[in-house]
Nucleic acid binder design. Structure first.
Lengths: 154, 154
DNA sequence: ACGCTTCCTTACGTTGACGTTAGGTTTATG
DNA sequence: CATAAACCTAACGTCAACGTAAGGAAGCGT
């Protein structure tokens, strides 16, 4: 994959297994932006947006987040990056940055505790269904051997 | 919690943090059934249904399953229980049972691989956000000490 | 230059999972 | 036994997350 390649909307959509409409919708919702447009107005994306979209899809599919919740999280992340980038900028007061950082911390902690909860739930479900599968497999083997002997008896 | 207690629709809903409408809807979709009705037609549930509902909610919230997917899974589970219960019933042919068992096995394997995938995804997300939180916390501490010294200098 | 595909914007349609009335019945309680 | 609270069925409303269609412009291969 060539870096800085400019991808059309269909290219991105196909790569991610979604549709162009979804990209447009995410743009409407303020989740993504095309990196640039052609003279005629066609959208062009780059690798960075693709990674962001993969991130969005993980948040959706693994945590069941709504698009507005995802937007909030992305805002938190970019806010953090912004603070990091402007650390030696005297124009931003320390107080403002402290508030932003504490908001970000709370958001991240909330997210992490949700992830922890999901992990626990998933592990117990995994165990439960693994046991069920094991029982099913032993039962299946018993019935298979029974079917064989039945056929042999013919 | 007294076993075999008969719970009204509101009691169940409150216990689970959902609404009566949701219970009715799940009944419409074939996910649950009240264990019985009063003479006047009011629904009554027992502990078993409550556990089933908790199971349903886990499938929804942790795996993002739709109600029809959940219905399918529940059907598989009851089918398995049915086979187990009628093992010494000669009326059911071995062939039929074998097919049902193999279907069930496939469904369970699919579910388990989905769970595995989610677990992996969640773990990597957990790591990513944990690192982000750590960086945020160290940054916060740095800024806090900075704010303190600034105030001291006044 | 021309045809075909891709993309644009705008706008209405759809689907799942409930929420919300409405009008009438049942059940619990003083 | 009356009456308020909970419940019933049936039906329409809602919201997020897209799907789909229309009419026109842009890109591109030859």
């Amino acid at each position: 994959m060539i870096p800085n390649e400019e991808l059309t909307v269909e290219a991105v959509a196909q790569h991610l297994g979604i549709t162009a409409r979804t990209l447009h919708y995410y743009e409407e919702m303020g989740l993504i932006e095309p990196t640039c447009r052609t003279a005629g107005g066609h959208r062009l994306y780059d690798e960075k947006v693709v990674r962001k979209l993969e991130h969005i899809m993980r948040l959706k599919e693994n945590l069941g987040y709504s698009l507005s919740e995802i937007r909030h999280l992305l805002d938190v992340e970019t806010s953090l990056d912004g603070i990091r980038a402007s650390l030696n900028n005297r124009d931003v007061s320390v107080d403002v940055r402290l508030r932003q950082l504490e908001d970000a911390k709370r958001s991240l902690q909330g997210l992490l505790s949700q992830i922890d909860g999901k992990l626990e739930n998933l592990k117990s479900m995994q165990q439960r269904y693994q046991e069920r599968l094991n029982r099913t497999e032993t039962l299946l083997e018993r019935l298979e051997s029974q079917a064989v002997t039945t056929n042999e008896g013919k």
